[in-house]
Every structure is written in structure tokens, then in C-alpha cells.
């Protein structure tokens, strides 16, 4: 069990979604993080993105940031805009969210290869890695905005987020 303090408040200083680590398990090709999500509010459910959208490795620190949010992502061409899944925690309640990650991430490198080739890197998500989980949430459920908006950064639901909660899972928090 992690000793991290739960984090996350909304701009109005209302208590926000609090995260803590319940356990880590590993099975073939996957790492599963089971997180406790506590909603301290007594009056409103908190709605959150419930699947990973990005895994960002900080090369300087070796930390993997697992992002359950699309905040700040620029629109680029793609075959499909896969909408995230959402869940909620009722007032004064706890939910257990299992986040499944690949045990090795293949990342496009920031440096080009010879002859204009693309370089990629394999990044093992080992037991010695620090993982930081970021979850975007709101006290209102997400509804698609059917209005066309040009030139605004972020995914369609990024304006829905009120705040993000973070949890640092230190190395070897669980050997799985």
C-alpha cells in the first residue's frame, strides 16, 4: 500500500478526488495498477476518465507519467478519435479503478535515424520504475459538445475537466 497523501483539489478549493495505491500485479505483458479513488464530498459525485490516454516518460528522472486525461493534447490527423471511457465515484464513497498498462512501451524517439528513418525506443515498465498517475475529473458528467470549434487546443472533452488528481507510485511499491 502506498503512503502517498491523496492529492487533487478543484479551483474552488473544494476537496477533490483523492488517489491512493491499492496494489500492483503483473501478468504476461501487462502491469495492473489498482487505485483507490475516494470522493470526500458529501453532496456530489465525481466523474473521471477511467482509461490511460498517454504514458509519458521523463528521461531525466526515469518517471513514467500515466495520463488519464487529454488535457493539452493538440489535434492531429488520425483514423479515429477514440473517446475515453468515464466512470464516477458517488459522494462519500470509494471506488477501485484498475489501470492496465503494457509492461514495455515502444516510443517514437525524439531523434531521427539515418536516411530519414524513424527511431523508436523500448522502455520497460519495470518494478524499479517510478510511476505517476494523473486523472482528470469533474463534478459534472461529460456530455459531447456538438459545436464546431476551430483553433482550440485539446481534445473535445478537455474543457470538461475541472481538475486533475495525482498519485506517485514509488519504485518497488509492490513486486507483483
Amino acid at each position: 500500500m502506498s503512503n502517498d497523501r491523496p492529492t487533487g483539489t478543484s479551483p474552488g478549493e473544494q476537496p477533490g478526488l483523492a488517489l491512493s495505491l491499492d496494489r500492483i500485479t503483473r501478468r504476461r505483458g501487462q502491469v495492473e495498477l489498482r487505485l483507490r479513488l475516494d470522493n470526500p464530498r458529501t453532496d456530489r459525485a465525481l466523474h473521471y476518465v477511467s482509461q490511460p490516454r498517454a504514458i509519458v516518460r521523463n528521461d531525466a528522472t526515469g518517471t513514467f507519467e500515466v495520463r488519464l486525461t487529454d488535457q493539452g493534447r493538440e489535434p492531429i490527423p488520425g483514423a479515429v478519435h477514440v473517446l475515453p471511457s468515464f466512470d464516477r465515484v458517488d459522494p462519500s464513497s470509494t471506488a477501485l479503478l484498475t489501470v492496465t498498462l503494457p509492461d514495455t512501451i515502444v516510443r517514437m524517439s525524439t531523434t531521427a535515424g539515418p536516411n530519414g528513418e524513424i527511431q523508436v525506443e523500448e522502455l520497460p515498465l519495470g518494478a524499479d520504475a517510478t510511476v505517476e498517475v494523473v486523472i482528470g475529473w469533474s463534478d459534472t458528467a461529460y456530455y459531447p459538445d456538438p459545436r464546431e470549434r476551430q483553433g482550440t487546443a485539446g481534445a473535445p472533452h478537455s474543457g470538461w475537466e475541472q481538475a486533475q488528481s495525482r498519485l506517485v507510485v514509488p519504485p518497488r511499491a509492490a513486486q507483483g
Binding site: E65, V82, P84, V106, R107, M108
Partner: peptide, 21 residues
Amino acid sequence: VGGNFTLIDGSLITIRGGTSL
């Protein structure tokens, strides 16, 4: 690529299926 691929910004290929950069 495979389903564990990310772009430089860390976004997983599975949130787009494919992309043209």
C-alpha cells in the same frame, strides 16, 4: 506498430488507431 506504441508526446496509438505526421 503495436498497441504499446506511443508518439513523442506519450499519447498511445490506441487513442487514434493511426496517424499521419
